[in-house]
Structures are given as C-alpha cells and as structure tokens.
C-alpha cells in the first residue's frame, strides 16, 4: 500500500508538469500584460518594468527560469501585490482557506450523511421528500446567491453574526462562510448517500443480514452504510480539493483573506506568477486527494487491491 502510494505520487509529477506547462503558455499567449492597467506608462518605464520582472526574455527562457525557481520553492514576485512574493501571499492565505474548507467538509459529511441515511430508511415518507427537496435546493442555489442572502439576513437584518470580516482564531466570522461553502456539499452528500443506501438496502447481502435476525443497527450501520460510503468517498475527493483551495465568491463577499480570490484577480490582471502559484497549489491538492480517495477505497472495499 505504501509502495503504491509512493508510485502514484511519482506518477502524478508528469500530470502536474503538464498542467503547469499548459497554464504557463496559455496565460502568456492571452492578450494583454501585467502592466496594461496602469494607464499611459511611458515606453521606457514599461520596458524597464518588463526587464525587471524578466518579461523581456524569450518565452522559453522565462518558462525554464520559472520551472527552475519553482523547483527551489520560489514562485516569484507578485505583479499586482508589488510588495509581496507569491509564496508569501499563498502562505498567508492557504491556512485560512484550508480551515474554512475542512470545517465545511466535515459539516457536509456529518450533516449530509445523516440526512441521506434518514431519508433512505424512510423512503417516500414526508421526511424523505423534505430531504430530497432541501438537497435539490442546496445543489441548485448558487453560492453567490447564498452568501449575500445569508449575510443580509443574519448579518444585517437579524444582526446575530458578523456579515463579513475575518479574525484568526475567532469562530463567529467563520459561521456564515462555512455554511455557504458546506451547503451544496451537504446536499450532494445527502443525495449520494440516500441513493447508495437505497440500493444497498435492497441488495442480497443486506437481505441476508436481515434474514439472520441482525438488529437494525448492524444491518444499517455495518452492512448497508459501508457499501453506501463508496460513492461518497469518490465524490468527496475532488470536492475536498476544491473546497480547501478557497472560493472566490465566498472570500469576496465575506471579506476573507483566503487564496480563492487570487486566482481570478491574478488572471484578470495578468499577474502571471500569482496565477501560476495558485494553479500549482490547486493541481497538487487535486492529485493528493485523488490518491487519498483511492487509498480510502481500498480500505473500505477489500476487492480493490493495489500492489
């Protein structure tokens, strides 16, 4: 298993390399440059700036330089946040995004799982219909609607929670962002678990468990739920990668200093290094969580063997 994990990680290196390369060149062939925003920079000033950031070198050399620096852990200076390096920015933002994301993930798993199980056990009851409707709602309503509405209702009208802002270590400002992030995931997990449970509950081996007089707690908890976890695990892997790397919507509406917004800001302002930095982080998260999914799968399902 350990060998498999290491091999998989090694195998992911080319993937990340391809992603970095594609992102690098796509970014560069896009029209515009990082200093276009600053109106009427004189030609000489512009050239000086470009030279200072190494943008006047041929593209292939810039690429090689970037790769070389990246290998040494240097992601270069940011073009829009002039006083910071990309590394500093990401180091400051990542813990915030990861904190919010993992809380949301936990909430999604626990609440979504519980809702899904209850709905499946009471299929076609009022509870089931309620869960299905709420889940459809959660999947349907986009976070850029949920975030301002929550902020309006709880932050402005009821005034029970901060409408925005961030203080490291304080719980209150996290509530609304975490709920916003978790809501669609709760919905998806609930639906996945419900569907998988319904299938598991009608499967032959659950019938066997019932035929052998096992109490409901064992039938549901051991024999049905374990099988029903498999689709959730494979869904939550990529979802975790996305959640932990921040959300531009949630961060901009609640004013949270995560890394989600860097990506959009960077791309729009042609902050090449910032965009590349976020791409690298996201790609690494995706690769790692895909691996985690595969390993978890093997733990739950003995039919899956890695060697």
């Amino acid at each position: 298993m350990l060998g498999y994990a290491l091999r998989r990680l090694a195998g992911a290196v080319p993937t990340i390399f391809v992603v970095i390369t594609a992102a690098f060149f796509l970014m560069r062939i896009a029209p515009g440059g990082p200093f276009d925003q600053e109106r009427t920079l004189e030609g000489q000033v512009m050239e000086n700036l470009n030279a200072a950031f190494g943008l006047s070198d041929p593209l292939w050399r810039q690429y090689l330089t970037y790769l070389g620096n990246l290998l040494q852990g240097d992601m270069g200076p940011s073009f829009i946040y002039r006083d910071f390096t990309v590394g500093t920015l990401l180091k400051a933002g990542l813990p915030v995004s990861v904190t919010l994301g993992s809380l949301a993930l936990l909430l999604a798993f626990l609440v979504g799982g519980a809702l899904g199980v209850v709905a499946a056990l009471r299929q076609n009851s009022a509870v089931d219909h309620l869960v299905v409707t709420v889940a459809t709602f959660g999947i349907t309503v986009p976070n850029f609607v949920v975030a301002p509405v929550l902020s309006l209702v709880f932050g402005v009208w009821l005034d029970v929670l901060p409408a925005g802002g961030w203080q490291t270590g304080h719980l209150a400002p996290m509530v609304l962002p975490v709920v916003t992030l978790a809501l669609p995931q709760v919905a998806v997990v609930a639906r996945l678990i419900r569907g998988a449970m319904l299938e598991a509950l009608t499967s032959d081996h659950v019938r066997t468990a019932r035929a052998y007089g096992l109490p409901a707690r064992l039938v549901v908890g051991v024999h049905a739920l374990r099988a029903a976890l498999l689709p959730v695990v494979s869904y939550l892997g990529p979802a975790a990668a996305a959640l932990l790397t921040g959300s531009v919507v949630v961060e901009s509406i609640f004013g949270i200093p995560g890394i989600g917004r860097y990506f959009v800001q960077g791309a729009l302002n042609r902050d090449y290094t910032l965009v590349m930095g976020t791409v690298v982080v996201v790609a690494v998260f995706i690769v790692v969580f895909n691996l985690v999914v595969d390993l978890l799968y093997a733990v739950i399902d003995p039919r899956v063997r890695y060697d």
Binding site: V18, V19, L26, F263, A267, V279, V282, I286
Partner: peptide, 18 residues
C-alpha cells in the same frame, strides 16, 4: 483525463481572456 485535471475555473477564465 488531462483536460479534467486542469482547474476548471482557470480554463473558463482563460477563455474569457481569449
């Protein structure tokens, strides 16, 4: 698969840029 592993938002924003 390779297209999948590109961050989706990145892809779309590039399209917007183009």
């Amino acid at each position: 698969d390779v297209l999948y592993s590109l961050p989706f938002v990145f892809f779309v924003i590039l399209l917007v840029v183009f």
